[in-house]
């Protein structure tokens, strides 16, 4: 992956596949570090699957026997001296509160740090394809933070879907304005 924002899209797709209705994407940056957290309220993974989740030969896909999503993000983190952890609670373990949280942290000053890239495009892709899911985004930077909560927008929009082109453009402009004001 050329940008970490593409890894974020890829991991969030796992949440979509897990039947999540709420997906949170949190980026926390200091001068030295970046922490990416992707959380969902999807079906969760049983402990035996969770144990081998960074193994490329562990996958839910049926078209072939390799799954590279989490291994690729783990590699990107570890090559900077960071790491990745995945925690998960299945619906069976806790019917009231289940889901998966993937956290990856990076040393931004390491020569092998992959640039974050365009997170706005990742968010717009996710919203375009999954207008019914609540996406909560927060990017904490040393100079302030950028946020987006699609549930709030949905309250204003009523029956108009979030993936209406004009709405997606509003989201793009909103995020650009927030980033520019930092």
């Amino acid at each position: 992956m050329k940008e970490l924002s593409l890894n974020i899209l890829d991991i969030a797709e796992n949440s979509v596949k897990a039947g999540a209705t709420r997906i949170t994407i949190t980026l926390e940056e200091t001068e030295q570090t970046l922490t990416i957290t992707i959380g969902d309220n999807g079906c969760g993974m049983p402990p035996e699957f969770l144990q081998q989740v960074t193994d490329p030969f562990c996958t839910t896909r049926t078209t072939r026997k390799v799954g590279l999503g989490i291994p690729l993000l783990a590699l990107a983190a570890r090559q900077t001296g960071g790491d990745l952890i995945v925690s998960s609670v299945t619906e069976q373990q806790n019917p009231a509160e289940h889901g998966t949280v993937t956290t990856a942290w990076f040393n931004k000053t390491h020569i092998d740090f992959t640039p974050l890239g365009d997170v706005t495009e990742t968010l717009c892709t996710l919203i375009q394809c999954n207008p019914a899911i609540d996406f909560e985004y927060r990017h904490q930077l040393p100079g302030g933070s950028v946020t987006l909560a699609t549930a709030e927008l949905r309250q204003v929009l009523g029956d108009v879907p979030l993936n209406t082109y004009e709405v997606l453009q509003w989201i793009r402009e909103d995020l650009a304005e927030q980033y520019n004001s930092l």
Binding site: L153, V156, L157, G158, V160, T164, E166, V167, W170, E173, D174, E177
Partner: peptide
């Protein structure tokens, strides 16, 4: 951006 702008999009759509 203002939510009023979003409401205007809603009314149009």
């Amino acid at each position: 951006k203002s939510l009023a702008e979003l409401a205007a999009i809603r009314d149009k759509m």
